[in-house]
Each structure stands twice: as structure tokens, then as C-alpha cells.
């Protein structure tokens, strides 16, 4: 059987909220190392990879690997029933048909029990190479969300260009064009707003704003986001889960988006 307790149900709620609009059905693979989900959107343009290590759970027991086929919008509906400071326990029998979800308030005076029907999902799995990227930009996740939203006003494709001086987001469409440049800063008093750039060579790639918009739904998870790019490969937009700022969390939520290329 599988049984795991997370002290903050809100963390799981934010994770599922962040992916449910991009991916409808997904397999959560549970093993002794933790919980993982990998899924593509319906157009196979982007990929979500969620890793929750056992470290972030108060209690974690997994006797045999289990695959939990989950309808994410339905899971999100149940998670919305949790209170702000509730803990959540997930339970599933080997080959069970349901996932039990139990919320408990801090003082344990309120216990809510739900069951979510599991599904058989035939999903293709991709091997993500563990590669070094040419450019890694760390910035405020709220700022990234705002830029993507502002770019969407003007068009559907955004160019992201990075040099040592800064990172430039550009868009053009029927009504005109626009760009926003963020310079590298190391403002000590506003650590969360700092923009840090590590790069080998300048890089510029084009991406569909629709998908970047989906990714920024993860902003409530972490005040910082890491954007990694290399020429002609998918961009990675990564958020720590259950960690603080730039420090490594016990989990991560990474989004991969294939670039648009000139024909």
C-alpha cells in the first residue's frame, strides 16, 4: 500500500492548480523515493515534470510502486476543500480503484475524507536528458508572470533573448510591438526581485505565449523561477516546491516548451 502525509495541503493544492489547465489526465508514479508525474499537454508541445521527494512528507510509506491515474481538474476540486493550515494524507491500496484523500486541521478537530476515482491512463513517457543549459536566468516568479501577461496583449509568440546585460522579452502582432528588458541586478534589500543571469553565449528563442501563460500558474508555489535556455532546444521554466527562495526545495515543478522555429 501507499500512504503519505504532507503537512501543508496548500502545497499540493498549488501544485495541482498549476498543472490542471495544461494537463487533464496524468499518471502519478509513486515509489520509495517519492511521487513523480510526467505528462505532455494534448498538443504535445510542452511537458510537465513534477518531483516530490519523500523528504517533504511528514510520513511516507510505499511498499510497492504504484501508478495513480488521476484526472487533475477533479483532484483540484477535492483539494480546494482543504483548509489553509490543513495537512493532507493520501492513501491507495495496491491495484486499488480509488485514492483516499484526508484533510486534518491543525488541532485535529476537523477531519475531512474524500475518495477520487483512479483511471487507466495510457501515457507516453519521455526521457528528459540531464543537460547543462547555455543560459540560466533566476528572477521573481511574479515578475515573470506579469511580463508573460503583458506580452500576450500584443501577440501570441514571444522572443526571449539573453545577454550578460539582461534578458529581453519581445513580441509583435497586428496592433504593434513591444519589449521588456530586465537588467541583471543584485539588489540586496529586495532579494526576491533580483535578476541573476548565468550564461555562456547570448541566446534568443521564440515561444508560444499561451504555454508560458500556463506555466506561470505555478507562481504561488515559489517567489523565484529559473528559466533555462540553450539554442534550438526546449526552454525549461522551473519552480521549487516546498523550499524557500533559491535554495533547493524537496521538490520541483518543471515545464518544458518546444521552441518555434523559422520555416
Amino acid at each position: 500500500m501507499f500512504e503519505a502525509t504532507l503537512q501543508k495541503a496548500s502545497t499540493l493544492k498549488k501544485v495541482i492548480e498549476a498543472i490542471k489547465d495544461l494537463v487533464t489526465d496524468g499518471n502519478i508514479e509513486v515509489s520509495e523515493t517519492g511521487m513523480n508525474l510526467q505528462a505532455m499537454d494534448s498538443s504535445h508541445v510542452s511537458l510537465v515534470s513534477l518531483v516530490l521527494h519523500t523528504d517533504m512528507f511528514e510520513h511516507f510509506r510505499c511498499d510497492r510502486n504504484v501508478t495513480l491515474g488521476i484526472n487533475l481538474p477533479n483532484f483540484a476540486k477535492i483539494l480546494k476543500c482543504s483548509g489553509n493550515d490543513d495537512s493532507v494524507t493520501l492513501k491507495a491500496q495496491d491495484d486499488g480503484e480509488n485514492l483516499a484523500i484526508v484533510f486534518e486541521s491543525e488541532g485535529q478537530e476537523r477531519v475531512s475524507e474524500f475518495e477520487l476515482k483512479l483511471m487507466d491512463i495510457d501515457a507516453e513517457s519521455l526521457g528528459i536528458p540531464d543537460q547543462d543549459y547555455n543560459t540560466n536566468v533566476k528572477m521573481s516568479s511574479a515578475e515573470f508572470q506579469r511580463i508573460v501577461r503583458d506580452m500576450t496583449v500584443l501577440g501570441d509568440t514571444c522572443s526571449i533573448g539573453c545577454t550578460k546585460e539582461g534578458v529581453k522579452f519581445s513580441v509583435s502582432g497586428d496592433l504593434g510591438q513591444g519589449n521588456i528588458t530586465l537588467r541583471q541586478t543584485n539588489s540586496v534589500d529586495k532579494e526576491e526581485e533580483a535578476v541573476t543571469i548565468e550564461m555562456d553565449e547570448p541566446v534568443e528563442l521564440n515561444f508560444a505565449l499561451r504555454y508560458l501563460g500556463f506555466f506561470t500558474k505555478a507562481s504561488p508555489l515559489c517567489p523565484r523561477v529559473t528559466i533555462s535556455m540553450s539554442p534550438d532546444v526546449p526552454i525549461v521554466v522551473a519552480y521549487n516546491v516546498g523550499g524557500e527562495k533559491d535554495t533547493e526545495g524537496a521538490g520541483s515543478l518543471s515545464f518544458y516548451l518546444a521552441p518555434k522555429i523559422d520555416e
Partner: peptide
Amino acid sequence: TRKQTKISSFFDKE
């Protein structure tokens, strides 16, 4: 014009 590439063309199927 720009063409949207698929994510599966960058990563190998497992």
C-alpha cells in the same frame, strides 16, 4: 513564418 515544434521531437521515448 514560424513553426511550432513538438516536445517529443527533442526527447527520446522511454
